[in-house]
Design a protein around this nucleic acid. Sequence first.
DNA 1: TCGATAATCTGGTCTATACCAGATTGAGGT
DNA 2: ACCTCAATCTGGTATAGACCAGATTATCGA
Lengths: 240, 240
Amino acid sequence: MSRFDYPVYLQLRDQLWSWIEAEKLSSQQRLPSERELSERFHTTRVTIRQALSQLEAEGLIFRSNRRGWYITPERLRYDPSRDVGFNRYVTEQGFKPRTETLFKQLTEVSPWLSEACGLEVGAPVYHIFRRRYVDERGLLVEHNYINPAHCSGLLGESTDLSIWQLLRDKYDLRPEHRDIEIYPLALKGLEADSLSVNPGAAGLYIQRLSFDQRGEFLELDREYWLHDALKISVRIGDRH
Amino acid sequence: MSRFDYPVYLQLRDQLWSWIEAEKLSSQQRLPSERELSERFHTTRVTIRQALSQLEAEGLIFRSNRRGWYITPERLRYDPSRDVGFNRYVTEQGFKPRTETLFKQLTEVSPWLSEACGLEVGAPVYHIFRRRYVDERGLLVEHNYINPAHCSGLLGESTDLSIWQLLRDKYDLRPEHRDIEIYPLALKGLEADSLSVNPGAAGLYIQRLSFDQRGEFLELDREYWLHDALKISVRIGDRH
DNA sequence: TCGATAATCTGGTCTATACCAGATTGAGGT
DNA sequence: ACCTCAATCTGGTATAGACCAGATTATCGA
């Protein structure tokens, strides 16, 4: 009952999968080099790479720039509708969070940002760019564009923790409603570089546009996640 | 100011992008064959394929099994929290919807389904498997698992339209709350075959677990979308 | 002991070629 | 005008080899 046309790279995929299970490789452990694998499985490097890419697409393994292939950790559960800080929900799930602020600046509203948030082109806006880690693997980068109207001096604060918490506790600002957009995309340019992945790597884009109690634009959040890093989980229509 | 290490396949990507713009190729139009492109751009087929894969990952083009490369249509906007049928919101956006029921059957609750929905293993459950098209491109396949308790005879109805509408109008069943899960995955097996894509093609998984007015399990919906087919758009916390 | 440097290892890119299977096209026969 | 079947075109898979640049490791000198 064997399928004749089952291609070699898929057979290799299966063998690699079994091998990983047998060796009980766990999160963040490294696989042998491509050259070693291609010898061990009697094929060429090109074909072994096809099999590895397959497992990468399936989220079992990931590559780290010119260092090797590693076992992908469990997906992080994430609810973009809840106003809970990154650090908190990562910790809740038993992982170790870390946030790096790559830059923060006061800048001017660009045309596309104006389109999205309603502020006039050229108006002042805070722009924060951060990278977030879980167990020391960089999972996403995030652009925050914040309306400085009611939170001047924000950039003087530490932004390595929750911006949401900062806005609430220090400036009494909280999102009243939000527009959320989610879609798969290819990481490239700044986002790919910041996450040390090759251009074209699969990613997930999450955008949150928040308005405060007054109905004014509060914040635009643009998150670029690795495709294998998260599982979005939302509960809707529950009163509890 | 040229970057020395900008790889050929990314240069080709840029050239192809420009070429597509210049030719004003539009939705669903076909590109020249890989062999022709590799001659035209003075490179090998392997490298041109890398460039094409890049554009595929970015969602500009898609491949149709051994037929060629085509321009990807605009993404469909989709709100999984709204109880609006597929046909309606596709039409609203100016596209042409179509649904194909690939099979429907009364079957038994499997262990993983029991885990998800709370019904006992072996209990009866309706299982419907459908494929959905937009402008004659198959964008997703969908498994519906429905609790037959309050809608016996459902399988006798036509399931090429909205199941949600059927449940509401004929059986007075409506989802009261839902648990939604979303994450990127690789399409494979039945789902990849049904969408005529290669195993490992990037996809988006959307699961909706619905409970009715009584708090009883109503329906489990598992959708497998092409990665470039949709843009999820949700509004949260708005009273309008 | 430490820091700089050289050797080595890794995945990333690229060429050239070959054959296969599914999809499409075209020629011929009715 | 239609069907059939062969030729052809397409992307999919696979081999064998090569060189590059970044990352890591080993070595050597201060």
